[in-house]
């Protein structure tokens, strides 16, 4: 990618963040709330995309990293009364540690085996949330007390029950995620990731330690997903085992595929579209998840590159 293209890409990313910032003053209340949720879920999918889109490893177990962040942050606030920033950091750390451990084991496999191994690990994590019900209250879950959801940063009081604060925290998290992924993708590691996706044996022959690079990708991916989970629980105050179910692993895949795997903004676009498609469909039919199934099939049959991927291929070559 040329320097000029890269400048255009950075400008586009900044413009997207600016638009999202301005949107909060324009959006009606419901869409304002929904956007907050979509941005947090987009971070989850963007994390997923680092592994799937850029490295070419399809995981069916990312709900476990989301849940790792969700539970680590939620339980420390609930049981240990930790402050919000500390709990968030714990959630992120939990994601880093769990993805490192899972990665060391699971990355010994590839392809179909990798999908099934990650799915199995995620199933174990889900069962664990049910098993340790003394702490998690299983599928019923826990509500974070309102008092625990405000904190001071350098003397400024932050109240997470305030929708404006919440929107901007979600936006900040999204912006940070975009910056991190942009940085990673344009680093040497990033080029190696893409090389692995395109042809792993050749990358190996060129002298790269592909295992270490894939592990790095998985840790970045898992940590970002966990950050999304931690943010989710702190912003919306509920932790429950539903977030560890396979449904959420599939959601991340769905958002990424729809928006465009391997494009920086694809997961955000995918999360946005799926949220509204399902929200609108649920007004007309009980079987609104049917849409999710049809979208997956149509994508994989006709648009394997997703929306932004297709746009990049056909029209805007420099799309990040």
């Amino acid at each position: 990618m040329s320097g000029a293209d890269r400048t255009k890409a950075v400008l586009l990313l900044c413009a997207v963040i600016a638009v999202l910032f301005v949107l909060q003053f324009l959006l009606p209340e419901y869409h304002h709330l929904s956007m907050t949720r979509i941005m947090v879920l987009a971070v989850f999918a963007m994390g997923y995309n680092v592994l799937f889109g850029y490295t070419g490893l399809l995981s069916l177990g990312h709900a476990m990293f989301f849940a790792a962040g969700l539970y680590a942050a939620g339980l420390t606030v609930y049981h240990l009364e930790w402050s919000v920033p500390l709990a968030f950091a714990t959630g992120v750390a939990a994601g880093a540690v769990s993805s490192l451990v899972i990665g060391v084991v699971a990355l010994r496999t590839t392809g179909v085996s990798f999908m099934i191994v990650t799915m199995m690990f995620a199933q174990v994590a889900y069962l664990a949330t049910l098993y340790f019900t003394t702490y998690t209250r299983g599928d019923e879950g826990l509500v974070l007390p309102t008092a625990a959801r405000s904190f001071d940063v350098f003397g400024v009081a932050v109240d997470l029950t305030n929708p404006v604060v919440r929107y901007n925290i979600a936006l900040a998290l999204l912006a940070a995620t975009i910056a991190i992924i942009y940085k990673v993708v344009h680093s040497e590691t990033g080029r190696a990731l893409i090389a692995i996706r395109e042809n792993e044996p050749r990358t190996q022959m060129l002298g790269y330690n592909t295992f270490a690079i894939k592990l790095k990708a998985l840790v970045i991916s898992g940590t970002l997903s966990a950050a999304s989970g931690a943010a989710y629980v702190l912003l919306f105050a509920y932790v429950g085992s539903t977030f560890a179910t396979i449904q959420y692993s599939i959601d991340a895949l769905l958002y990424t595929l729809l928006g465009g795997a391997g494009t920086l903004l694809g997961p955000l676009a995918g999360a946005l579209m799926m949220f509204y498609v399902i929200d609108i469909a649920s007004e007309y039919t009980v079987a609104y998840l049917l849409i999710a199934g049809l979208v997956l099939i149509v994508l994989v049959l006709f648009f394997q590159k997703g929306v932004l991927g297709t746009i990049r291929e056909r029209w805007i070559r420099w799309l990040p």
Binding site: E29, L33, T146, Y238
Partner: peptide, 29 residues
């Protein structure tokens, strides 16, 4: 999400009718 939708899109006066505990607890905050 449904509670948010009721409050801000449908702008209802009150919500009611939930049975399963986990939905109640997840929606209450």
């Amino acid at each position: 999400e449904v509670v948010e939708k009721f409050a801000t899109q449908h702008k209802v006066d009150a919500t009611f009718g939930t049975l399963f505990s986990h939905v109640v607890i997840g929606s209450s905050p």
